[in-house]
Design a protein around this nucleic acid. Sequence first.
DNA 1: CGCCGGATGTCCT
DNA 2: GGACATCCGGCGC
Length: 216
Amino acid sequence: MAPSSEASHLPPLERDVLRGRAEVVAPALLGTLLVRIESDGSRSVARIVETEAYRQDDPASHSHAGRTPRTEPMFAAPGTAYVYRSYGVHWCCNVTVEEEGVGAAVLLRAARLLRGHELVRPRRVAAKQDRDLLRGPGRLTQALGIDGPRHDRTDLLDPRNTVLLADDGWRPPQTAVRAGGRVGVRLAAGVPWRFWIAGQPEVSPYRPHPRAERPT
DNA sequence: CGCCGGATGTCCT
DNA sequence: GGACATCCGGCGC
């Protein structure tokens, strides 16, 4: 029998979940799964514990200035990956949300690794503890081998692809979902569109932008 | 734990 | 040229 059959039975995330406004979808994705399928069929599975919402009318969003070659995927159909380079060195992975033509996305900031430790460890040699493996958006992509050339513009709900959003039905208790300012953004720093599961050690440490402008 | 500098692709609303 | 949705290692407390 095929060794991958068990993992392949993880149900995909429902696309309709992604059609709502970014700041509604972002907390709704807490507890869902990110799956990385290697070329040999082996899989890593991680539980999403921290997200951030970005949308077109939001000064902190890449889509705020309109379409560019880089931000084009933000305007694609819901479920599309928007993978961009951060500070020239790291990759960050977003899921496009809202309707096609609207520049909105949810940044996947942190996750807890459930399976695939042996696949992730060699890509995250700098991680001193397991909780640091996918703690932060740059670390998350490095851990799962997500990058622009391979994954930008791919459909995260198409089971033929190598990075997928899945759903095993688990969700955090409502009382454990927290909201606050987004990490490292200068504009609209007070908008509480970062969401995380309280008590999860994989949630990335909050760090304000050095010149954050907060609304009065 | 906190602060600092270095790495550097893509954009200038 | 400067800013940026980041991370890491080195240093000091």
